[in-house]
């Protein structure tokens, strides 16, 4: 049986008095890819950002309930520690523009004041870039700025930056929406590779992407988790009419 790595228990999130995530209970198995989908404003990104405590960075944002990482409540942990364990990749590739490719990969160590040897840094850079299938493309230009890379390469660099911290979970907020189809396909292939070492939670508007890459899919609507099941089941025979209407494009 697959072990649960993330579990949310009656999780609620608010922007001031606006209740945007309502009583979400979900169990995420380890080494799976989970797609989170739903119409704009349904609370999926807020829920994702709640998992590694990014939600509370927004002024007026609060949360209630529990998000358990290996049975420990992340709301009780130090947020920096949480973000070391649960990395995040955003919609637009955001490498540090003034840092080299090399320094971008180990930026997490520098920013958190973690001191490591040059040899260890070299190992982490090569290992992380290899994990995201970027090493062969950039190994001869590690000192060049990350911003010189193509959009798809930049996004993989950002994934390498997250992977470098050896997290247990990686969160992706629409990771390919700014990429062309070829780069999208490369990143999607990467998801399949990454899941052997990490648990991936991906918010996506692209339903075909959810169907292609994920093991399980969660459908959010108006702040509620409507349905959560194996992706094959969700895309062939969803239980809830709202899910069916959404995935078949009949949502009004």
């Amino acid at each position: 049986m697959e072990s649960t790595i993330i579990k949310s228990v009656d999780y609620n999130a608010y922007f001031g008095t606006n209740h945007v995530v309502k009583n979400v209970n979900i169990e995420i198995p380890k080494n799976n890819v989970i797609a989170v989908m739903g119409p704009s404003g349904c609370g999926k990104t807020t829920f994702l950002r709640g998992i590694n405590r990014m939600h509370e960075l927004i002024p007026g944002a609060t949360a209630k309930g529990q998000i358990l990482l290996n049975n420990e409540d992340v709301l009780e942990m130090h947020p920096i520690f949480v973000r070391l364990k649960i990395g995040m990749v955003f919609q637009r590739p955001n490498p540090f523009p003034n840092l080299s490719i090399y320094d971008n990969v180990i930026a997490g160590y520098k920013l958190n004041g973690i001191k490591i040897s040059k040899a260890e840094k070299d190992r982490i850079v090569e290992h992380s870039l290899t994990r995201v299938a970027l090493w062969n493309e950039v190994k001869d230009s590690l000192t060049k700025k990350g911003s010189f890379l193509s959009g798809g390469q930049q996004q993989r660099l950002c994934i390498a930056r997250a992977v470098a911290m050896e997290p247990e979970v990686l969160l992706f907020d629409e990771p390919t929406s700014a990429l062309d189809p070829i780069s999208t396909s490369t990143v999607e292939e990467l998801f399949h590779e990454l899941k052997s070492n990490y648990t991936l939670i991906i918010v996506t508007h692209n339903m075909q992407q959810a169907a292609r890459v994920s093991d399980k899919t969660a459908f959010f609507y108006m702040g509620e988790l409507i349905e959560y099941d194996d992706t094959k089941q969700m895309f062939t025979n969803p239980t809830d009419t709202r899910t069916q209407n959404y995935i078949t494009g009949r949502f009004s």
Binding site: M207, F235, T236, N237, Q244, I247, T248
Partner: peptide, 9 residues
Amino acid sequence: FSPVANDLR
């Protein structure tokens, strides 16, 4: 159209 669910069936 990449149909799914009842459309696919």
